[in-house]
Amino acid sequence: MIIIGERINGMYNDIGKAIKGKDPKPVQEWARRQEQGGADYLDLNVGPASPNKIEAMKWLIEVTQEVSDLPLCLDSTNYDAIEEGLKLCKKPAMINSVPAEMPKMERVFPMAVQYGAEVVALAMNEEGIPKDADSRIALAAELVATADSLGFSPEMLYIDPLTLPCNVAQDHGPEVMRTLREIKLISDPSPKTVIGLSNISQGTQNRDLINRTFAVMAMANGLDAGIVDANDNELMSAIATARILLNKDIYCDSFVNVFINRNR
């Protein structure tokens, strides 16, 4: 599974303060730590509190790239901030995210083509998050068809079927699993899939246990990527193990270490 480290997000106090006071230390510290934990991408989100999203995004990108070579996942609903950010990225980045809404898709996909960026796309539209798998798949198909018609390869698309906390929306679980499987039927090459993992356990007890169990189940249903806590060792070990059991990585006795250190 492709690991997108979630921690550099203005929602967290330390990052929020760092952005406000232009103190690169906490950001760079988390960039390093997530890289050591086994991240493939670093998610950058300026958070809701930043008054100037474009400047904040540019600053985050610059200070992160000073200490890490990992590609970045620009997480914002402000597409101007993303576009300015893409210009600064040293490696092809990921845009997080676009829903199945026409004006937004028309803004994001051509921009992604221009900068060679990948795109996280949400299986939702103006009407919100659908409950059943069929509606999610229909939205995913719309995303793929629109991307394809705008010259954006489905392979570069990461569809997020959208998970909801299991304590309040428990019945979404099986629908998400079925969506993950059937997304592969949309096109060949098929789009990839991604999940904002920590969402599944919002407000629950035993969050880590729920996260890693869900990660393993989703992987068995074809999940390709996750926006996750790359410093949760139990989670990373579970992901490494699932990769072995799915015959994605060749087994060896030190498979956990090999997975965590695969980008070094």
């Binding site: 198909a141 793929v144 068809a145 394809d148 489905p154 039927l185 949309i186 096109s187 060949d188 098929s190």
Partner: peptide, 10 residues
């Protein structure tokens, strides 16, 4: 070997 949705849609 089945066809994908997008191929059929076209």
């Amino acid at each position: 070997m089945g066809l994908t949705g997008l191929e059929i849609y076209k």
